[in-house]
Amino acid sequence: MSNSKGQILSNKLEIPKSDELKHPMEGYLREERFPHIWCSTCGIGTVLTGFITGLQKSGLDREKVAVVSGIGCSGRAAGYLRLDSFHSTHGRAIPFATGLALGNPELKVVVISGDGDIAAIGGNHFIHAARRNMNLTVICINNFNYAMTGGQAGPTTPEEANASTAPFGCYEYPFNLPFLAESSGAIYVARWTSLHIRRVSNSISEALLKPGFSFIEVIAPCPTLYARRNRLGSGLDLMKFYHDSAIIDHNADTRDIDIGYQDRITIGKFVDKDKPTFLENKDNFLKKKLGDKFIQYTGQNWE
């Protein structure tokens, strides 16, 4: 890293040692891994902040919360959190998280990943985890493109939007993720933008406390690729856009909340219901069928 005069600046972020200067998220971040890889005014860090605040608000024992990410810019989220955190393969965060949640049923497992990871390469895992009502909270940071690899079109790129593999504009229909989640069986579905940070953290807190498959989509700016290629300005300009274009409608029918190019974004909490989880169903069902002979898995016995 160097400044405009060519002087070399330190790569290390100096963290104030004073006891009075305590960051509210101290201890939740792996500060030794900073600087992080995200661009200036990227929305992912904001969502990470929202997650930490939401986790703090939930009152959950952080030792019993694990985070799994896939691959991509958002996939790096797990690596900066001081929790049990796993950085899996592209698209496989949800099945990895499924194994983790079943291997240690005491855990609340959270998946934080991007739109390409969750809805394209991991799309099949997403719908099946929702169908099973696996006890997972999935936070999908949607920046409308594959940013890590240079701004290619993805499953959520709006029609008309430009991307490096859609150089004349995108002509595919994008996914409407809340609709996909709801129709696959998710018990909690919300969409926010990274501008609505309090709502993001409240929503995450609610979702964390709900057993079952909860899904939160957060629309976030990608200033370096999506915004630049489409001449939408900086991350700040996109925040202004979110401010003007996001409409909160908790009662919206998820079928009607597609996102068009630079069009209105319907946000809110669309689904909040209760349904037994995969493990609750499994254990209750087998208990009923097999009676006392059924032995519930509560973690591996290593004794």
Partner: peptide, 18 residues
């Protein structure tokens, strides 16, 4: 849902202690 998921879940479960 497929073998990609199966193998990923195995790694997850092992880190869960199984």
């Amino acid at each position: 849902e497929d073998e990609l998921a199966s193998m990923a879940a195995v790694s997850g479960a092992v880190w869960g202690g199984a």
